[in-house]
Simulated assay, not measured.
Amino acid sequence: MQVTLNDRALLKISGSDSELFLQNQLSNDISKLDNSSAQLNAYCQHQGKIIALFWVMRYEGSLLLSFPIDLVEKIHSRLQMFVIMSDVVIQDVSNEFCQIGLINETNENAFNIKDQLSVLLKKDNNVAAVIDAESIDIWHKACIDSLLPEIYLLTSEKLVPQMLNLDINEFGVNFSKGCYPGQEVVARLHYLGSAKRRLFAFQSSLEINIGDLLYCPSSKSAQARGARYKSSGIVIFRIKYNSNFYCLATLDVELKDAKITLNNEQGLTLTRIKK
Rank of each mutant, 00 (worst) to 15 (best):
N165L: 02
L166C: 08
L166Q: 08
D167N: 12
I168H: 09
I168V: 15
N169Q: 13
N169A: 11
E170I: 04
F171I: 03
G172E: 09
V173H: 06
V173T: 14
V173K: 09
N174V: 07
S176T: 12
K177C: 11
K177Q: 10
G178Q: 07
C179P: 08
C179I: 14
C179A: 05
Y180A: 07
Y180K: 12
Y180I: 06
G182A: 02
Q183S: 07
Q183V: 02
V185H: 00
V186E: 09
V186Y: 12
V186T: 05
A187Q: 11
R188C: 07
L189G: 10
L189E: 07
L192P: 00
A195Q: 10
A195E: 05
A195T: 08
A195G: 05
R197V: 06
R197S: 06
L199S: 09
F200L: 02
F200R: 00
A201S: 14
A201Q: 13
F202S: 04
F202H: 10
Q203D: 05
S204P: 01
E207G: 00
E207V: 14
N209M: 01
G211T: 04
D212V: 04
L214H: 06
L214V: 06
L214T: 08
Y215V: 12
C216A: 13
P217F: 02
S218V: 11
S218Y: 11
S218K: 14
S219R: 07
S219H: 12
K220M: 06
K220V: 15
S221L: 13
A222K: 15
R225P: 00
R225W: 04
G226K: 14
G226P: 03
G226R: 13
R228C: 01
R228L: 08
